[in-house]
Design a protein around this nucleic acid. Sequence first.
DNA 1: ACGGTGTTTGCATAGGTATTCAACCCGACT
DNA 2: AGTCGGGTTGAATACCTATGCAAACACCGT
Lengths: 339, 339
Amino acid sequence: MSKKPTSSDVARHAGVSQSAVSRVFTPGASVSPDMAKRVRASADALGYRPNALARGLITGRSRIIGLVVAYLDNPFYPDAIEKLSNALQQQGYHLLIFTTGKHGIDTDTVIQDILDYQVDGLILASITITADLTKRCAEARIPLVLFNRGLPGSGLSAVTSGNQTGGRRIAEFLLAGGHERIAHISGFDGAQTARDRLRGFQDGLDAAGAPLHAHLPGKFDRATASEAARALMDRPDPPDAIFVANDHMALAVMDTLRHDLGVRVPDDISVVGYDDVPMAAWPAYDLTTLRQPSRRMVDATVEELMTQIEIPAAPRRRVEIDGPLVIRSSARIPEGWTS
Amino acid sequence: MSKKPTSSDVARHAGVSQSAVSRVFTPGASVSPDMAKRVRASADALGYRPNALARGLITGRSRIIGLVVAYLDNPFYPDAIEKLSNALQQQGYHLLIFTTGKHGIDTDTVIQDILDYQVDGLILASITITADLTKRCAEARIPLVLFNRGLPGSGLSAVTSGNQTGGRRIAEFLLAGGHERIAHISGFDGAQTARDRLRGFQDGLDAAGAPLHAHLPGKFDRATASEAARALMDRPDPPDAIFVANDHMALAVMDTLRHDLGVRVPDDISVVGYDDVPMAAWPAYDLTTLRQPSRRMVDATVEELMTQIEIPAAPRRRVEIDGPLVIRSSARIPEGWTS
DNA sequence: ACGGTGTTTGCATAGGTATTCAACCCGACT
DNA sequence: AGTCGGGTTGAATACCTATGCAAACACCGT
């Protein structure tokens, strides 16, 4: 016995029709208070709860949002996922999570799998998607939001921080600090986020007529970033400041500089990151960094999803949310720098 | 147009019955090679993929595993989730994730929500469950596995590391190092994992006739752990070694000791953690810690789920996987200590 | 008392798939 | 040639719920 009770079981128990039971559990349906009371009583007695799968099948709304994410070792993402999950739960949605792994299970395959679940929406975090797949999503009318990635010209919704503005601001900060050999360890060339940060940074330097002293790719990866830091310091003219494209790498760079190369931060060299992950605030690093307002980014993502679900024809929006430069001690602070 | 094609659409297109289409997409069903080819051709032409919801409704298997997790700021969990997700995907299952948040959305409510999705199994990570809920799960025949938590006497499946053994091993290590005032910052009293680590630690001290110098709760939380560290060092007889119940807290303790209190680690005091999260290996901390073999724990969890799904009557198992003590530099290393 | 308005309820059906059952075909064996 | 059997196929049904439709009902004003 003790299979899960169905709405018909409840109906029989309460002496009403199955439709009535359904209506009691459907917000906004027409039910008399008396009916509601009887049905709920029976439902509680039997331990009935509506079957979300059957419900999703008939309404065409699964109330599931697919999340595709490559890796979770950058602490920005766990933090964001936690907030995303909470925000979505508040709206009655839930996250079906798919990881591609760094060993690159084919992203497209993974997304195909997700679509099978009739998700009401799709969030891609630090993932790029092929044009073919975006077309399929569009055809299936599945809202798609890129989180922390943009794909300009794709016409896709995307939520990021103001990467270009942020990069520029960091350049200004380092210049104001009197740095003369300013280097950059970038992310992954294929990621618009990385390109925008570099672009803004470069613009900021250009505006002051300052050169970008050196530039190496870090691939959003600790090992590669460390390697890049070593390479930079090996040069005959090592930099006196490095902007690292995200905190995850910046922390690795600081480790390498201090413990591997015996360089003092910020005395010998300034380091600035991007994201403001929780660890950036830890005293061991105390990293100056440009904050990505994850809460607001998450809220924007959820809002974008919800409006697209409500109004399929709604225009795709690209949301950029600027964050403040959080000044800590990993980079020299310019005289009289305010704000 | 361009609604998602159904199996009937494919059937019509291929001039066969809907059953045939279904069979082609059902592994192990009886289909002739010719039929398979024709159907697949039509399916590809229309872009058909089976609807996982409908499939789940009729088979009673959603191929979804629910994961309930409280918080993701302890980096042990993101790491484990990533591995879990990968392992499950390999088996054709996917993770529906639910967060309770620290502000304690009612765990029971959350689990109720999960059950609505007809999940094939449930993983609870760092979550305790009420007896009422376990009963409901049992009645619904939903496999339940506790990850990194145990609930002795509950008859539930649980996968943990050998917490007691580990705690004891740490005691032996600290004793061998000649420490005389050994303190402990524990986790959360309600968590068996925390109790086991303490128990083993205490046993190890007892076996040598050594006292536990002091013991404060850390609630698995950075702020509380820092507070505890401060309190310990404020005493007239501060400890010369602290075993902190997990790395997440241990890193906070190290930060507080070094940057807040100006105490040197390990010169003035030894710190040992538990988990071996990725950050423990970072040079800024280089934390001596007992490794929880997350890969093997994940594999055991998945295996346990799969066997319970296959064989509902299978006995619930409690799996404990011992991990090695990873010796780094945050704690004095005993003379001639090997292994 | 009656028509009208607005609310509640049940009936029947749909949504997309897997699976049982019977029908079928075809080759093989006696 | 006839029968048996394995392998394929299609028709019909079930899974569980939401919803359009029409019937039933209550209530109001005149």
